[in-house]
């Protein structure tokens, strides 16, 4: 294992802004999410964006239906979830693949680099493989400066090509999870 890339404070807070900028560029109008600490800044940016309807979901499975419905109604949508949420969606992902709904799923990873909680590891270890088995093209992001480019490319592939794209935001990027009070 290699040593972590040093990430200065500015860059750490800038990468969710880079994702939000791509959402705006490609005209994403609905963002469904199950909250995750790694997504908290992006969620806040979406909540404050008058062009985006943010939908807090009770489970990630609902989000698959939401993005399908958005596409059917002529809007672009994205899903935000933690890696554990990918496991919840497996059967529902059939809908995206069958109907060819363009979709971007941004996955904050747990159960990998520096994970302190072994309960997170089994799901985190299979998240990317699982997404691929479900028909997604997957891209991992390890460095803050790559976020905008990779998410932007993923959005273009999803919405120009009716593809299912998952961008995995690695635990190295997000920062090791700490116990919070």
């Amino acid at each position: 294992m290699h040593s972590p890339t040093p990430i200065d404070a500015d860059r750490r807070t800038a990468w969710p802004d880079a994702i939000h900028a791509q959402f705006r560029r490609v005209g994403i109008r609905q963002v469904g999410y199950v909250p995750d600490a790694g997504h908290s800044r992006l969620i806040a940016l979406c909540q404050n964006d008058p062009n985006i309807i943010d939908v807090v979901l009770t489970t990630e499975e609902e989000g698959v239906g939401l993005v399908a419905g958005a596409a059917l109604g002529g809007q672009r949508a994205a899903l935000l979830m933690q890696s554990s949420g990918v496991g919840n969606c497996v059967n529902m992902f059939s809908l995206l693949r069958n109907c060819g709904f363009g979709c971007v799923v941004l996955v904050t990873m747990r159960g990998e680099f520096g994970e302190f909680n072994q309960w997170q590891v089994p799901m985190g270890a299979i998240t990317e493989d699982l997404l691929r088995l479900c028909g997604f093209l997957t891209y991992r992001v390890e460095r803050a400066e790559e976020v905008g480019e990779i998410v932007g490319a993923g959005c273009d592939m999803a919405f120009d090509g009716d593809l299912q794209i998952a961008v995995l935001l690695s635990q190295r990027l997000i920062g090791r999870k700490q116990w919070t009070r």
């Binding site: 609905q30 609902e62 989000g63 239906g65 939401l66 993005v67 399908a68 419905g69 809007q75």
Partner: peptide, 8 residues
């Protein structure tokens, strides 16, 4: 959920 996406 699909109907919700369409409705929005």
């Amino acid at each position: 959920p699909i109907a919700l996406g369409v409705a929005l």
